[in-house]
């Protein structure tokens, strides 16, 4: 499903990854472990396409497509998801708006019609209940005032 071949990557012209190989098949869970500065986060950021993280050599194939050629949002729509340890707080944009934008982008990519506002809100509230999140979560700013666990759940 995800195949990384001889990946080299640098941040600010400093080489961090020097030939990473990894194959992840569907349904597998892999944990990448290593000391500080060994490139675990860099691997995640390069895969997500974060600005400033440049793949200098090697290739990454995701579901048969060349991942490195895609824009960040394309990668996300194809199904690559990066959970942040410290996601950025965005006051002024509510979780509801943010989630709807993300869900609509995903649906559009799959050729599905966007959810109307009412059914989206109902669904969001149901999911909140299922995972024991207070409804006020949806009105709060994106990642604003979250506990560590809440941030990762987002």
């Amino acid at each position: 499903m995800l195949s990384i071949r001889n990946l080299h990557a640098s941040v600010d012209d400093k080489a961090i990854l020097k030939g990473l190989n990894l194959d992840v098949k569907a349904g597998e869970v892999h944990a990448i472990m290593g000391p500080n500065g060994s490139g675990k986060s860099t691997t995640g950021h390069v895969l997500s396409g974060r600005p400033g993280y440049e793949a200098t050599a090697g290739e990454v194939e995701f579901l048969g497509k060349n991942l490195l050629e895609m824009d960040t949002e394309e990668r996300a729509r194809e199904g690559l998801f990066l959970a942040f340890q410290y996601p950025v707080e965005i006051p002024g944009v509510s979780n509801m708006e943010f989630l709807k934008a993300a869900v609509d982008a995903q649906r559009e990519h799959r050729g599905e019609a966007p959810l109307d506002a009412v059914s989206f809100m109902k669904k969001a509230r149901d999911i909140c209940k299922a995972v024991n999140l207070d409804q006020s979560f949806l009105k709060r700013g994106v990642n604003e005032g979250f506990s560590g666990g809440e941030k990762e759940a987002q």
Binding site: L82, I90, A101
Partner: peptide
């Protein structure tokens, strides 16, 4: 830039992320 990237990692296009972030700035 970090906020823009965060939106994009959730599948939201660059342009749409810019609009949402701009609006968020005054929406407070």
């Amino acid at each position: 830039e970090n906020a823009l990237h965060y939106f994009r990692t959730r599948g939201v296009s660059q342009r749409e992320a810019e609009v949402m972030l701009s609006f968020g700035f005054i929406n407070e």
